[in-house]
Write a protein that binds this DNA or RNA. Structure first.
Length: 283
DNA sequence: AATTCTTCCAACCGCCAAGTT
DNA sequence: AAACTTGGCGGTTGGAAGAAT
């Protein structure tokens, strides 16, 4: 049932790697280089699955792996990057030389998640997530300052929509989707407007390209319906804020908050907008 | 000293996207 | 265009080690 395994597991070693296996793998990769993981075990004479070899090399045997505890500076960076990117461990690891995504993920799960427990947003989410949407009183539905957490999903484009005057960003978005206009994005203005937040991230080509390639969708929204962690429609959120991941870059006139936790699919965004329009019309 | 509980992290798993045939 | 392969990712697990009883 389901997907076939990546390789025939019969007769393969599992569990912790022995010193001897490490030596074989290291020696083979030093000679032949990385890649071709599927065939590597056979060629190297290892009774391991290719995936397992890849993981062992990337997370443990690579010569540039940094050993030892996460420093205070690294921890601060992890927190900031997590705020920005969510659970995109490989992206976070990419900005911490010598650290692996697995290591950072483990560190986060064992240390940081504890420290950050009890956050207001999480608390608020938890108090409402179990309720049947039908049971939510109407005044709650109308509460556009309601804070909730959405599940991060990948999107294929980055949109950095800026509002010019009262122009609805949706106009720009639709045109961008139709290919009639570039996504409404001005790097210079983006940096100007968000300089306080981004200052600590060494703004530069590298960072900007990271952002642009990171699937992070920034939404400057004027009314958008989102789903909660359970994938159910939640109450509407209205915001004049600009977000980078979870980070609010501008104060909203109505102090409303929409947390996208990193990303929304463009298709979902469009359907949210449609449903939001219907909702507004029905009021 | 023995047992139970908790923490930590290496390794595994399934899914996905990109590349190839 | 469809099927298949491959590499990469994030979530989860299991067991070793340490702490508590």
């Amino acid at each position: 049932m389901g997907r076939s395994p990546c390789c025939a597991k019969v007769g393969l070693n599992r569990g912790p790697w022995s010193v001897h296996e490490d030596q074989i793998l290291t020696s083979y990769i030093k000679t032949h280089g990385e890649g071709k993981w599927r065939n590597l075990p056979q060629k190297a004479g290892l009774r391991r699955c290719g995936k397992s070899c890849r993981l062992r090399w990337l997370n443990y045997l690579r010569p540039d792996i940094k050993r030892g505890n996460i420093s205070k500076e690294e921890e601060e960076l992890i927190i900031r990057l997590h705020k920005l990117l969510g659970n995109r461990w490989s992206l976070i690891a990419g900005r911490l030389p010598g650290r692996t995504d697995n290591e950072i993920k483990n560190y986060w799960n064992t240390n940081m998640s504890k420290k950050l427990q009890g956050k207001k947003a999480q608390k608020q989410f938890n108090t409402t997530k179990d309720k049947n949407p039908e049971e939510v009183p109407q005044e709650k539905k109308l509460d556009r300052t309601h804070v909730f957490q959405t599940r991060a999903v990948r999107c294929t484009k980055v949109i950095l929509p800026f509002q010019e005057g009262n122009q609805m960003y949706t106009n720009n978005l639709e045109l961008a989707l139709d290919g009639k206009r570039s996504p409404p994005f001005s790097p210079q203005r983006f940096m100007d407007e968000s300089s306080n937040f981004l200052m600590d991230f060494e703004i530069g080509e590298l960072f900007m390209s990271d952002v642009l390639n990171s699937d992070v969708l920034q939404v400057h929204c004027d009314g958008i319906q989102a789903t909660d962690n359970e994938g159910e429609n939640n109450s509407s959120a209205c915001s004049d804020n600009l977000f980078l991941g979870n980070e609010m870059l501008q104060d909203s006139p109505n102090k409303a908050l929409f947390e996208s936790n990193g990303a929304l699919e463009l298709q979902k965004l469009c359907s949210f907008l449609d449903s939001e329009d219907e909702w507004i019309e029905s009021q």
